[in-house]
Design a protein around this nucleic acid. Structure first.
Lengths: 194, 194, 194, 194
DNA sequence: AATGAATGAGATTTCATTCAT
DNA sequence: GATGAATGAAATCTCATTCAT
């Protein structure tokens, strides 16, 4: 009856609203207690729309995590890319570790969930690998490959500790550590990047 | 012969077998797909015995993770404690990061699951914090508090990347990074930094 | 054609069928042996539909008892309301006590179960109180408050004895007792006793 | 080895302690939620002793209710038996209805549970019938058979309403009602009993 | 005689998914 | 295209009862 007319969704942006709701639910409940119903309620959409838009719960989670990775790595890259000098690059790394923009409490919770889930889901594993790769590329704009690896590990590990610690991060200590790592790696390789 | 005769389990060690089975199931399936049935099957015990020994699935998971944390942090401490000189201590840290004894693929998977779960379970959060604290204490046997923090973040973050990376770790790079961090922190403070 | 189209149950009346089945199961087995499965089987509906329609077994029982109370108190009121004279009102009370329409064997069994359950469930306690109140109101159409109270106690207690007794009720004795109570209460107060 | 020595329980009175604990548990939880474990905990006896002393949960409940019936009907009889005149007998009936010794809140809860359970358990049904019979016999010490029946119904029904009502009983109304019933029945039959 | 560890059967509940409309 | 009613499969948990000691 409308065979030639192109059907248009009557609620554009619903897909994204569902994914954001999914991330909220995951952050609050964990993947193990994330259900269709909870997501639908949180997003304010009918239950049936979840299986209409997504191919089962695994697919939905995978796409939610992909959205998370995209948001996070954009921020990561933007932060690093702004730097014009090596010193500014180091400062950017310190910023990523200490926040407050990156690796908030909610971010960290979601990242933990994503890493955990990635070990049991191929699509999310790929997303995770791509994100890691992209982070390394961002760092490589300023640092040697070795420094990039080391710094990336630090950017990973330090906020994790912060997530479980009550004590706030010591920004000077972080800065000194970053600098030491960079200096060591630049020594080692003749060709500085920035 | 008396009313106070102590009843004895007719399968000693079953509790531990169940916890180990739970860790196996978690490593293979993730917390979200870890069920009583899967654990019981893996442990070779009747389904009903899980609720006999544990106060529900949350308690069971919490105790399994406590067992994991205990095993891991013992290894951590043993490795660090063996060192007699600062150089040996640095080597111990490199060993923790690069393995193969610590942070195996299975270990990392379990740690991810534990961190994720800790954000939604108070008991596991406490276990995680205690573990982090114990790690820092172990490092403090050899390093300044600042160095201990930085190294601990590195020990956390680097194996995580390894877990998702295909490439093996560059042991020399790790050693150089560790050394740089230690050198920087020792320079900076005659007295331990807080 | 629109998003707000009201979905319609594809088996209307199923809720009520489930409640009736629940009352059957309770009457035959008692609340302690009333299970989802037995109710579902009796109602001829899938097990899962019970938790779809009701918030757990307590809610289901509470609603079943509410249905019982409604049916019973409607009959009670209809019987009392029909009376046009005091004599007819007394006859109505005798009818309620001796049956056969009210307080059948099944009714009494269900009432016992409801009273017992009410002591452990707030919703059913409320239902029970409301029913008692409604009965008193019905009687108050014809009798003084004092007579209403006394008669209501009699309407409660006599069928209970009948339920455990083999002997049938002596209708004349009941009539005489009812009349004595009414006469005493009417004498005593020109104005209704409170 | 002790074939000829008569074995003696090392905890006499335990049977009774268990039965009392069972009644406590029933009063607090209802028969549906009365379990071996709860009774054992309440009685402070080992779980295994319940199935040692009793032939399953039904037997235990039956015996607990038998104990209740015995206690209650002894009190009933003692109260009625004390009366020396018809007036005292009426007063005794008023006492049974209004308390405080008979038909306390706990009593009523237990009686409800017993009546409910009796419909599904032959032994308890017998206990209930015997109790009813014994009550009628007690009343027959003073009243005509007809009055006894009517009064017994009243003694049954009125406290039940009290159990669900907030309002306390109107003692004068009860006394007047009892008197009216007795007077009517005595008229009717030439031979007064007391 | 007495007990508490142990378990199988089954109860309640959750939930991803299906499907008629 | 979209939905919410509905359900089967399975998850968690409860518990009467058994039994080795």
């Amino acid at each position: 009856m409308s065979g030639t007319r192109r059907e248009v969704p009557n609620d554009p942006g619903r897909r994204e609203r569902i994914l954001d709701a999914a991330l909220d639910v995951i952050a609050e409940n964990g993947v193990h207690r994330t259900t269709h119903r909870r997501i639908a309620t949180r997003a304010g959409v009918p239950l049936g729309s979840l299986t209409y838009y997504f191919d089962g719960i695994d697919d939905l989670l995978a796409q939610a995590f992909a959205r998370l990775a995209d948001t996070m790595s954009r921020f990561y890259r933007r932060t690093v890319q702004r730097a014009r000098t090596l010193a500014e690059a180091e400062a950017a790394v310190v910023e990523l570790i200490c926040g407050p923009g990156y690796a908030t409490k909610r971010d960290m919770t979601l990242i933990f969930e994503m890493y955990a889930y990635a070990n049991h889901n191929a699509a999310v594993a790929a997303t995770t690998r791509a994100w890691a790769h992209r982070s390394r590329e961002s760092l490589a704009l300023h640092f040697t490959p070795g420094a990039s690896r080391a710094l990336d590990a630090l950017i990973e590990g330090w906020p994790m500790h912060r997530a479980f610690d009550d004590a706030p991060l010591d920004r000077e200590l972080v800065a000194a550590t970053v600098h030491a790592i960079v200096a060591a790696a630049q020594d080692e390789s003749g060709e500085p990047r920035s």
